[in-house]
Design a protein around this nucleic acid. Structure first.
Lengths: 140, 140
DNA sequence: TACTAATTGAAAATGATTTTCATTAAGGAA
DNA sequence: TTCCTTAATGAAAATCATTTTCAATTAGTA
């Protein structure tokens, strides 16, 4: 976990951003966390690693991580401000409605569906969002 | 359009809410509109029908319409505060990335997919969100 | 028509996010 | 290593969206 949060820091560095104690704390908090976290939640957790951290820096760091596609926003009925480590390639989210655990899955084949909808509606379909909700092995 | 926005007012009435000029203006604005509207957009548009309307009343009316499942929130990359007339039964959204037009479609069969994901992950899957993005016939 | 409780809009309060700004410190250059 | 430039920081203020409060109004029943 700590091993690969280094990779995020490297990414930041390679893109001209500096590596600071504040950013380390944020990155260490979000990286590899299987729950989506809001900026405030990141702030609270990251301040345990680096007390002087400011909430503004959390916002700014999350912004950069999102820009580099290292994290992504999670849309939920309760709100859409939470972030999680980004999936790789064409992956979708699976969320536990009980504990909030997030997993990725891939292997959705929506070609037949999109073709049929394109035909029916006349739209040229370019993208899709798919998200599953359920109960994880612990919660069910 | 005006015909059936009456049905929404009836729904409100049947649920113990009063029918007022302010609510008529909001309902007439959102009902049958093929674009998702934010509270401010509803306010601006509805004030053309009823100048004394307050933004607070827009929020309160949207809240009630959502509660009665007459409208639903639309999630988009740019934000998730916009509302549109709700779909009926099991329907999903198709959005035009150019003009913002929203359409519904149905007939997605994700049974095979959810079964396979359930098997792979151990999750008990209860719900799914699916949304398509593309270009409508006018914009493509 | 009268009455009561729901509804209203304005203003204030709250909460989230962004901007401003003077200070600090990362990290390349010497 | 030390210096220097510039990015990054945190605090405070500003902004923006949403909610609450409250006295006045009004829908709709009795």
């Amino acid at each position: 976990m700590s091993i690969s949060s280094e990779a995020w820091l490297e990414q930041l560095h390679e893109n001209g951003y500096r590596i600071t104690a504040a950013r380390r704390a944020v990155v260490d908090t979000v990286f590899g966390n299987s729950h989506a976290l809001t900026p405030i939640e990141v702030y609270d957790a990251a301040r345990k690693k680096y007390r002087a951290l400011g909430l503004v820096t959390v916002y700014r760091t999350l912004e950069k991580l999102e820009e580099l596609h290292l994290i992504q926003r999670v849309h939920q009925p309760i709100g859409c401000q939470a972030f999680i480590s980004a999936g790789h390639g064409h992956q979708h989210l699976l969320l536990c409605q009980q504990c909030g655990q997030v997993e990725f899955f891939e292997g959705d084949d929506l070609d037949a569906l999109t073709k049929s909808i394109a035909k029916k509606t006349g739209y040229q379909i370019q993208e899709h969002w798919l998200q599953l909700f359920g109960l994880c092995t612990n919660c069910k």
